[in-house]
Amino acid sequence: MEEEAEKEKMVKVYIMGREFEVPATLNIVKAFEYAGYRFVRGIGCRGGYCGACATVYRFKDDYRLNFALACQKAVENNMYLTILPFMPAEKAIYDLNNLKPRGSVLLELYPEIARCVACNTCTKACPQELEVMDYVQAAIRGDIEEVSNLSFDCIQCGLCAMRCPAEIVPYNVGQLARRLYGKYIAPQAMHTHKRVEEIHACVFDEELDNYSLLAKEDVEKLKKIYVEREIKVG
């Protein structure tokens, strides 16, 4: 009975100004759909990974603007909701192969980061709770590794760029830093390189052919081999 009562619990939300009653168990995306809207843009994986459903919301009688991924945030009573389908953001054109991982490269391709006033508005907007301002600041001083580490969990939702009073696009700066870090700075995984070479040299072809044959002829044996395989850790 109690479970049913929980299911029935409705909250009042305002979608682009219009009042709706929706079940309290829904996230913002589903609340929109419950109210009859259909998403064409501004939606993606629905799992909190793709960053397409960035949104802002506010509570009635609260001046503060809140930020979230619509697929990750449950609706609450008196929420004012909208969806932000697209962020028209500046993106530098570059060929990673022609860049050098010098610190100044971030400032060269995104010179507007020099306009940062350290107001921290970007950090307040980040649904991933990243220290966005800190990585923009690290970008100004050319610390690619720091930018890369601090922005690692960025999902490019665009909210930081939307809020920045200096019109910086932090998430693209972070992406450039991570690309530079991955290509030039982070230690290479040599065992992976070696394995790729082995694959190209057809080292495993015979073994694979045998397994393919087993899949047709003796699935149980194949399963046994799989279960008893040697797993190397570390």
């Binding site: 100044s104 400032l107 060269e108 010179p111 507007e112 020099a114 306009r115 100004i140 001083r141 050319g142």
Partner: peptide, 26 residues
Amino acid sequence: EVRDLSMEERQEIPQIAIISNLRKFS
């Protein structure tokens, strides 16, 4: 306008100059 700076200028001029110039002139 910071985007009007050529790539050579962006490579040569240090942050301190670009930041101060933008603070004053943009």
